[in-house]
Design a binder for these strands. Structure first.
Lengths: 244, 244
DNA sequence: CGTTGAGTTGACCATCGTCAACAGGAGTGG
DNA sequence: CCACTCCTGTTGACGATGGTCAACTCAACG
């Protein structure tokens, strides 16, 4: 099922012409839609434009006018900021159920690029803001999601500021496993659709250090490298590493 | 005036018995109160308990039940998370106008400690949440502030993940100068009420590296070390460093 | 079968951390 | 008033973690 969510858009040859069917949306109970009543739900559905983004395409760029907000329904998106000299920091990976544009700001403060083929519900930002103005529940839900994002960002700050390479990689793998498990059933196999360079730019490391660290973990029998992912073999030890 | 905001609580020998006088509050146009109408303002004022916290005292601890939210009116507060082995990451420094507890979560996800003597308006969390439920403007303001915090957290992630020691220190000093300038008039002298260890734990460095980096900047005539702060001498070069 | 791009591995090196010594100011007590 | 301690910050010597540069493997693709 994780594979479905990752690859569905590619398999179905998405045409950007789909009709919205929120009632059967897999992310209904994960996304911004969770906890909304039928009226809020319907009002949102009326605004939604379901779209597909091929692998490596860009949903939006850093500093670009934020004309739309997005709710990811399939695939993986990387969120990144660039320094003028080209150094890149990935802020996070958006999975099905994640919302882009929570801040409702006029400009995007980071770019969003499809790591896999992606499906997303796109909503004009202005219409969405108007909706929140008449529907306090929606605004409350949005605030809740923003607060949760802030909490994750704070945890990432601790990881970047105070952990070594091995701990960073362990945290990354365990957190990603946890996130997949919310979307689908829990598994010790963690799909890694993003490349090593993306992982490096997320953890504040180089691609070589990420590669070496994963190799060392495989040598130590903490995990097994499989095609497009890893299988976690020794969860207790990984969790000890991640705990610090 | 910056000195006033920093030291007012100490000077006046705060007794935790003050009455609320939001109309004359210095942070009225900075804090959560900014942009609220008189009714919202008055409703909030009715809930407020103005309190003082001496230097080094704790407003709340990590993982503690969040029975109150806080709006800082004077002084500096450090927000920190600890790893089980004692490593510390400071998430940020709260200045007058900053709000603690934006997420309205049941537990605090970090601790808050007074770096200087501090004054803060304390509000019971439950009452505050009830207030937001009847006053959408207040919730919107809260969401706006949370989104702004998230954006700052994302910038800090880039600093921690992709910048070297010198760039980190330059970013820190320039950002702090900018923040003071919103509270009081802009100055090239940046007060640093927090110790070197706090700066190190904020930037993901050691105290020695922070000390060496500042010494090097002083040697290079980028700044001058003054009692409890620095005077920025070469803003263009510092900004070039900070830009990356 | 050659090309391309991602990932891995090794050798070397730089940045920053560690450990230790020292300086200077604040507070304390004789 | 001075001696003493304590605490913070500074500086130096050394070392380890992770970065840099380069070579190589391997799978995908034409």
């Amino acid at each position: 099922m994780v594979a479905d969510l990752l690859e569905g858009a590619r398999q179905t040859g998405c045409q950007n012409t789909g009709t919205v069917d929120c009632a059967h949306c897999r992310t209904r109970f994960l996304s911004v839609c969770a906890g909304l009543d039928d009226a809020d739900q319907a009002a949102m559905a009326a605004l939604v434009d379901p779209r597909c983004y091929p692998e490596r395409s860009r949903l939006f760029a850093e500093d670009e006018a934020a004309d739309h907000v997005f709710s990811i329904t399939e695939g993986v998106v990387r969120l990144a900021k660039l320094l003028p000299d080209g150094r890149r920091q990935i802020l996070g990976f958006a999975l099905p159920g994640d919302f882009l544009g929570l801040s409702l700001a006029v400009r995007h403060s980071f770019s969003a690029e499809a790591v896999t083929s992606v499906r997303a519900c796109r909503i004009p930002r202005k219409s969405f803001i108007e909706l929140t103005e008449s529907r306090p529940h929606l605004l409350a839900r949005l605030h809740e999601m923003t607060a949760s994002e802030l909490s994750h960002a704070n945890e990432q700050i601790v990881i970047l500021g105070r952990r070594n390479a091995e701990e960073k990689v362990a945290c990354f793998l365990l957190t990603l496993r946890e996130r997949w498990s919310v979307i689908e059933k829990r598994s010790v196999t963690v799909p890694l659709p993003m490349g090593r360079q993306d992982i490096a730019d997320y953890l504040g490391l180089t691609i070589e250090t990420v590669s070496r660290t994963i190799s060392k973990m495989a040598r130590d029998r903490l995990l097994l490298v499989v095609p497009d992912g890893v299988r976690l073999l020794d969860l207790p030890k990984l969790e000890t590493l991640a705990r610090g």
